[in-house]
């Protein structure tokens, strides 16, 4: 962990700390550690932070904090990153109804990889996926670590409307569409969970640095969760990540 971050100027109200040249869980851990350290210290003049694959963008208010002072403070925090103890990341369970109308491309994915539909579901729901970052649309997670045995290229012709909650595969990536939008992912299932609800106390459910675990559910369970969500009595299943589990 000796590689030092690059401090890149991104206009007069933001700077970008770049922690590495590639996408890796190691680099992401550093970003999470840095962001949490800054949050704990509640540094004056920081407007907000945006973690991405290999960097942390820090939006600051130059009327409140001097740039060079800010960089010095950040460098001190960075030097100390290896010594801080981080809380375990959280794993959030995403109940998913695979196949059928909810996952019209599940069979495509199976036949493309010469495995059965059941195997696709089992492989997809077996792992805890790291949320590297959120972006593109509110609450859209960029997930890492999908098993290459279910990797499938995007559709040749994108769909003009994909319903919110759709779970899909694009190349070696898997993801969830938080809101309805056009897209070319192979759709394998759908979750009733709302990743984005502007009127909820926490409008966005996911956070970078945490993990997602898909859980296969049947139609009855899907409807039950949907009802509970409507009535406001659904409780998300969230637990601390255990080391070594993936």
């Amino acid at each position: 962990m000796c590689e030092k971050a690059k401090y890149l100027i991104s206009g007069d109200c933001a700077l970008n700390m770049e922690f590495g040249s590639n996408i890796s869980e190691e680099v992401n851990k550093k970003i999470r550690a840095m962001a949490l350290s800054i949050e704990v210290k509640a540094l004056h003049g920081i407007v907000e932070m945006v973690p991405t694959y290999r960097s942390l963008m820090i939006h600051y208010d130059p009327l409140k904090v001097d740039f060079y002072e800010l960089v010095n403070t950040l460098k001190k925090i960075e030097q100390n990153l290896d010594n801080i103890v981080l809380p375990a990341p959280e794993v959030i369970e995403i109940p998913t109804l695979y196949g059928g109308d909810c996952g019209p491309d599940l069979e495509n994915v199976a036949s493309y990889n010469n495995i059965t539909v059941e195997e696709v579901v089992e492989i997809h729901a077996s792992k805890e996926y790291l949320i590297y970052m959120l972006g593109f649309t509110p609450g859209f997670p960029y997930l890492g670590g999908m098993d290459t045995r279910i990797a499938t290229p995007r559709l040749q012709t994108p769909r003009s409307r994909i319903p919110g909650g759709s779970v899909g595969i694009a190349g070696e990536q898997t993801g969830i569409y938080p809101v309805s939008s056009p897209g070319g992912w192979q759709l394998i299932g759908r979750t009733p969970i709302k990743l984005f609800d502007p009127h909820r106390k926490n409008p966005i459910l996911l956070k970078s640095g945490n993990y997602i675990k898909f859980k296969s559910i049947n139609e009855e369970e899907y409807k039950k969760i949907e009802n509970e969500l409507d009535n406001g009595n659904y409780e998300h299943i969230i637990y601390p990540k255990k080391d070594g589990v993936n």
Binding site: E48, M57, L134, F136, T137, G139, P203, L206
Partner: peptide, 9 residues
């Protein structure tokens, strides 16, 4: 609307 860029807003 500040504070939600990390969530893609």
């Amino acid at each position: 609307r500040y504070g939600y860029q990390q969530y893609g807003v």
